[in-house]
Amino acid sequence: MLKIFQRLWQVNWAEQWQYRANLIMYLLYWLVSPIIHLAVWTSIANANGSVSGLTANDFVTYYLLLLIVDQLTSNITIHIFAYKVQDGSLSGELVKPIHPMLTNTLVNTVAFKTIMLMGFVPVWILLAFIFRPDFSAVTLQGILLAIPAVILGFFVNFLLSGAVTSVAFWTTRVYSINEFYFAMFVLFSGQFVPLQLMPKTIQTIASYLPFQLQIYLPIQLIQNKLSPTEIMQSFLVGVIWLIVSVILFNRVWREGIKRYSAVGA
């Protein structure tokens, strides 16, 4: 098994490395929106002293940590898998005795993220130099707590994205469905603004949904902003969603693969 993953890594790394110039553009794409939100909210906080108790520095640290956490927990499943169903190139992978999504797509996503991180680290240091965040709220304990949260967030999101992407077996409109899924993510993850500034109802709904595992929870953990009860609760919700997403992904995948009839076969 280890050998299989090693070989998959070599192939996928080479594939992604080929497109490293495009990845720089992609990185830029990724960076701009958090930086804009950072600028908007720090300007509001500076003008009013603070926003619901959050100072300008709170926003700077929030969005700078968001850039890291988002890099780690996101995935590109829809872009590297859905087309294979549509053009029939999935057939070649299905004859191999390994799960296409849980091996090849997963390794490709990790290779993509590794290359992105190589470009991202210097940019992040530059941004930290520009915005001069005060990270005094960050502790080692917080970072250690955030690691399992990031891993949980990545896998829950990867499996749910896998389930959404598998809708490609039924319809070519899978990209529209994915857009809807992404809109949910933007609304409930804390991507636009720290969730505590959202309307109360949205906050309550968000605390039961998987999206905050990807952004809000790890950031709050790193900064030690949560009480032990809240931490327990969030991890409990996370583990429940992990179980749900494993079951959901398996069902959708199994039903979908039955419907698959290769294009051109």
Binding site: I44, A47, N48, V51, S52, F192, V193, L197, M198, P199
Partner: peptide, 8 residues
């Protein structure tokens, strides 16, 4: 959300 927290 923005204008709940600020006027300008």
């Amino acid at each position: 959300i923005i204008f709940n927290n600020t006027t300008t």
